[in-house]
Design a protein around this nucleic acid. Sequence first.
RNA 1: GGACCUGUGGUGCAGCCUGGAGUGCACGCCGGCCUGUCAAGCCGGAGGUCGCGGGUUCAAAUCCCGUCAGGUCCGCCA
Length: 607
Amino acid sequence: MSRPINEASHPVVQRSEAARPRGLRTDYCGELRSSDAGRTVSVCGWVARRREHGEHLAFVDLRDHTGIVQCVVDGAADLRSEFVIRVTGELRLRPADKLNAAIPTGEVELGADVVEVLSASEAPPFALDGRADTDEQVRLRYRYLDLRSERMQRNLRIRARVNAAIRRSMDRQGLAEIETPLLWTPTPEGAREFAIPSRLQIGSFYVLPQSPQIAKQLLMVSGFDRYFQIARCMRDEDLRADRQFEFTQLDLEASFVTQEDVWEMVEDSVLEATRDVTGEEPPEVVRVTWDEALDRWGTDKPDLRFGMEIVRLEQAVAGSEFNAFKAPAVRALCVQGEGALGRGRLDALTDRAKKLGAAGLVWLRVVAGEQGTGVALESPVAKFLSAGEQSAIVKATEAEPGDLILAVAGERQLTCQVLGQLRLELGQPPVSEPPYRYLWVTEIPLFEGLDEAGNPLAAHHPFTMPHLDDLDRLESDPLSVRSQSYDLVVNGWELGSGSIRIHRADMQRRIFSVLGISDEEAESRFGFLLGAFRYGAPPHGGFAYGIDRLVAILAGEENIREVIAFPKTQSGADLMASSPRELSDRQLAELGLRIIKPPARGAQPGS
RNA sequence: GGACCUGUGGUGCAGCCUGGAGUGCACGCCGGCCUGUCAAGCCGGAGGUCGCGGGUUCAAAUCCCGUCAGGUCCGCCA
C-alpha cells in the first residue's frame, strides 16, 4: 500500500495566485466544493468513467491532476474513456440524498451546458483506475498512460515536493547549487561507468559520472564553501528494485566543517522533505557506530521501526558444555509470541540460517515452568544446557513464556548478520508503515577486506579521512582503523553516504601507500584532483543521498521505478522508447565505431 | 555469470500438479434498453499464435528441453 500524500497541510499542487487555473478552464476538477455552488465554471480533463441512463442523462467522472468531479451530461454525448473534454456549466449542490462521501467533490456536481471534445481516445490498453495490478511490462510500454494514474501522479508530485523541500533547505543553509559535467572523465575506482564516444576526437570517450565526487571536491578547492546539486548519476551495474542505471542524488559538500556539521545539514533537508510530504515530525535522528549497529541489528542499515534486537549470550553460556556454543560469538533473537511455531517452520528457519552462512540455528521455546513459577526452555539442545545457563539465556533475552529464542554461534560478524537477516524476515514492517526512523551509522571501517594482492580495499573511497584516534594503526592493523565516514539510513534502506575528505598531501600519500597505490599510479588515476590539492585545499567533507530511494520510502513504494517517470527494466531496456537500440552504419562511421557482435548463444567459440 | 517466480482474448485471474475439443470467472470493448448513478444496472455480441521453438505422446495451455520477455534476489553496486 502506498501512503497518501499530505493533502491536509498542502494541496496536491502548490497554490499561489500565479498557479490559479487559466486558459480553457476556471477551476480544477478535484478542488470544487459546495462553497463554489452557483458559479458557472469550465473544467478540462479526461473521462474517467461514465454511467449512462438512457437518451437524456449520463454521469461523467471528469479527472484532472487534482481529482475527479461528476458532470451531468446529455446521454447522447459520445464520451468514452480517456476522451479529453471541456465541460462548462453551473456547479450545483447535489440532492441531499445523492452525496458521495467517497470523493472530496462529492457534495457538488457540474450541470453540463456545453461539452467540447478536445481530443478523442482509443480504448486504453489497461484501466487507469488502479483496481487491478496491471503487469509492469504493459505499464512500462504505455508509460504515458500509466503516469496518468492517481498513484503515479501522486508519486511524481511527492518527488517534486521532495526536490523543492531539499532546495529550500539547501538555500536556507547557504549552499550554492552548481552543475557539473555529464560528459566527463572516469571517477577513481567504484562502479562500472558508461562511455560516450567522441565525434570530434575519434577513438576517445567521455565517461558519464557515477557521482560528482571529484567535481565537488574541486569546487571546495575553488572556494565555494558550500555546494549542492540535485545530480543525475549513472552506473553501469545490474539493476535492482532500489537501483537504476540513472539515478538522482542530493550531492553536497562543505568546507571547514566537521562530521557533525555535515550531519546537521543533511538532516535538515531530509526532515524538511519528510515533514512536507507526510505532515508529521519524524522521530529524532539517532547516531550509532558501525560496530554497535552490527551488534544490535546485524546490519549496517538497521530498521529501527521494530525491536527484536540481537542479544549477546557469550556470558550466559560461558563455560557451557554445549559444543555449538564454544564460539567467539553467541548471539540470539527473542521472537515474541512465536513460541508455538511448528517444527516445519523451525526447520525452515534453520535451513535459512544455514543458507545465510551460519553453522546452524538453535531454537528454544520459552514455556511456563512447573507449578507455574519461572520459565523453562523446550529445545532439542536443552539437555546440553545447565539450568543456570538456561535461566541466564532467558534473562539475557528478556524472554517470556510463549516466546521463541533463536541463537546462532560463530564468528561475530557473520553471526550478527545472519540474525540480522532473520530479524528482518520475521519482523520487518512494510515499507509504507511509518514512522520514518532516520539514523546515522558512524565510524565505519576505513577498509573492507583485502584485494588479491593483499592490500586493503577502501570501504568508501581513497580520499576518506581516517578516524584520528586510529592513525597509529594505519600501517600496523589497517582493518581495525575507523574512518570519518558515515551512512544515512531510514527504515532499513541505505539512503546515502559521505565522509570528511583528506585535504593534505602527506595524509593522502600515507593512504595511497597502505592501499598499495604508487605515486605514478595515483598521478595517472587521480592526477587533476591531486594537482588541485597542491594549491590550497580547505578541510572539507560532504554527503550524497539517493533521492529516488527517499521518495520511494516517503511514497510508501517498495520499488524506485514507481517514483521515476521513465524507468528501465532489469535488462536495462526502456520498453516504451525501445532503448537501447542499434545505431545506423552512418552514425557509427561518424563516431569511428564498428560493432563486434558477441557469438550467438550455443555457437562454438571462434566459429 | 547464477538461483527462484511469472507469461492463457485488451486487463486481472482460474485451468497446469493428475495430458483428452480454447473450457471458466471478473473487468474492459461493441450494440441495445434504461432520467439519479457514482465499481450504475439489465440484455446481447465480438475478441485467443495458451510468449516463442523443439521434444515426448494417439493426443500438450498442461509433461520434458531450449529460448525470449518481465520480476525478486546473489554476484556486482568504492
